[in-house]
Design a protein around this nucleic acid. Structure first.
Lengths: 352, 352
DNA sequence: GTTAGCACTCAATCGATGAGAGTGCTAACA
DNA sequence: TGTTAGCACTCTCATCGATTGAGTGCTAAC
């Protein structure tokens, strides 16, 4: 038995109908709504074949049929093969919405997931990049008040991280400048990962090569180190978690709660996006997901890059019965927009 | 008919039982679980009286009774009057959790609502202060790369806001210093509100009193202005919205959805917290709320202050059947902690 | 004033019933 | 040989009535 043209047509009609209504579809519905030129009886025969082939299942004997994960996989691959995924044409417009005026990477990600879940009506995530591999360009101390100094850590990528330091006693302005310089000199070109690893020996080293300003410097150093350690924390942004309450499959509060407590756990989401293949665009349907909790969900993710290096993923999670066309094109468009924004605003690691 | 001692005892028992179980309570339950030394029949008579007095209602003739808003009001006032609200003793510990290492006000608020909803199991909010009244102390430009400059806006309160500027052409380092100085000079002591109002005339003024570096300055100015405008946006942080799914009163997805879409709307929440009286601690029970959507909810809010000036509110929203003792003391403790942190880290408007 | 006893009320539960949607099979048809 | 009309069959879902049980209100006795 093979998937001849008519079977494909019927299968697609069933999938399409089920995506729209979340209700098992019967032969009559198909023959009425989709013009196939054959009677319900014929369609019934074909549906029976499709069931044998593993594309459909019947929840119970006298109900219509619903698509299996295999059916969705076929559907998506077909869309893909025929390049039928409609491109979202408004890349510029998207970029404008996503781009943050204050140029903070975190804000860009927050905007991205917001837009993503607004467009898809599902839950969306992004894992913010970890800065392990990042390299320090310069450290600048800015006086704020008598006993407060803002420390700016400027990375090669032009990302700026800040820590506010409280001083035990004031440091004169010109001395701050000097400390900035010597800190910058010491730290220039170092990877955060390495600094974090070797912090004890670094502190010792700085201590022994002390200069006139070293007391103040030694006071500030631990703050810098602690902040660098905190860069390592995984940061996940999500949005639209409560969107699932609109879906009939989550009409049951218990089910909704299970889903929500899974996706609210940043660790599990981070894992999900982390080990999800290296493909630029990844589509994981139902039982293809490793997590048992997601066996009724599909996960569409795309990568974003920093200087050509894959660094993180953005994605949408929804029921297997999702509007793949829309979700895939939206995820793709938004990851494109993010890549564009990053390459415009944050330079490569080793350039300059 | 008056609230004699026994009636009070019974009323409190009923409220307490209903808070725990969310189920209408009957006379037998009371006589068994709470030692009152009287029979169910007697309790029934008293309950009937309490119903006449408006403290209880019966969902239907043959069910137990549930407390009315009036009952909760009595209950809370009584707790209050007798200073029975247990103080959370770990102010220091709380402060440690809430205080953010990077000293960002926003992070402090995020931590606060997180802790608040963790402790109470309800939904919590905070409205971040608007900066209208804030006064600029200094503006500092920090070079980041050839064509990027970080503009730091340092307020009298020692809050630092930042904007990343993209330059059309590089500005030499020493010129940046000069621009910082002249911008600081012009802006020093000005209220953000006033700057925002008079931005056109300010730009004009700066244009006519131009100096050698004015070209670059004029390029940067619009960015500054736009960023100042954005300070005006109300910023609401919330947490624990999905906690309500654990409550039996929201077992119905439709009800849960209604609640969630109300509290996810930042505007409505901001309004809620804004016009909610000037009391340091405010308790609004059920129908006391102006919003029809919240007629089954209670709202506990507390203020926080900047330099003695009331500036925002933090609060918890939950079912009228909430554990008032715990919620009130937690809200109070956390607002205390916030006040303490703010006064330690951010100085008053007109000091220094 | 308190309480035991009892009739009464009403929501929730359970089972039976019928309607409706949909199937599979068969036989007839092009 | 593929298609289709017809029909018996299956299973869910909604409805209805009976039953159960928690709880009340009233009355009469203590």
């Amino acid at each position: 038995m093979s998937l001849d043209k008519r079977k494909v047509k019927i299968l697609k009609a069933i999938i399409s109908s089920y995506i729209d209504n979340a209700e098992a579809v019967g032969s009559r519905t198909i023959s009425k709504k989709y013009e196939l030129g054959v009677s319900p009886a014929t369609i019934r025969n074909e549906m029976s074949d499709l069931e044998d082939m593993g594309y459909l299942v019947q929840p119970h004997t006298s109900s219509g049929r619903i698509p299996t994960d295999k059916a969705y996989r076929y559907y998506v691959d077909d869309l893909w093969r025929k390049a039928k995924i409609s491109k979202n044409p408004n890349l510029d417009q998207l970029m404008e919405i996503i781009e943050d005026k204050s140029n903070e990477l975190d804000e860009i990600f927050k905007n991205s997931v917001r837009i993503l879940s607004q467009f898809t009506k599902y839950t969306s995530f992004v894992v913010a990049p970890q800065y392990k591999q990042s390299v320090i360009k310069r450290i600048q101390l800015v006086p704020v008040s008598e006993n407060k100094v803002l420390m700016l850590i400027i990375l090669q990528t032009n990302i700026v991280k800040q820590v506010m330091l409280r001083l035990s006693r004031p440091i004169p302005y010109n001395q701050l400048e000097k400390i900035s310089e010597s800190l910058s000199e010491k730290m220039y070109g170092q990877r955060l990962e390495d600094i974090d690893k070797n912090k004890d020996s670094l502190i010792k080293e700085l201590y022994y090569t002390r200069e006139s300003n070293s007391d103040a410097l030694m006071e500030l150093l631990p703050y810098l180190m602690e902040h660098i350690s905190r860069f390592e924390e995984v940061n996940v942004f999500s949005d639209g978690i409560t969107n699932i309450l609109e879906l009939p499959e989550y009409n049951d509060v218990v089910k909704a709660r299970e889903f929500i407590s899974f996706v609210e756990d940043k660790t599990s989401v981070a894992k999900l996006l982390q080990y999800n293949g290296e493909e630029d665009l990844d589509i994981c349907i139902g039982s293809e997901n490793k997590n048992r909790e997601l066996k009724d969900c599909s996960l569409i993710t795309a990568t974003y890059k920093f200087n050509g290096k894959l660094i993180g993923r953005i994605g949408v999670i929804g029921p297997t019965r999702m509007d793949y066309n829309n979700v895939i094109s939206t995820v793709k468009s938004i990851s494109d927009a993010i890549n564009e924004i990053i390459s415009l605003n944050f330079n490569g690691e080793n350039k300059e």
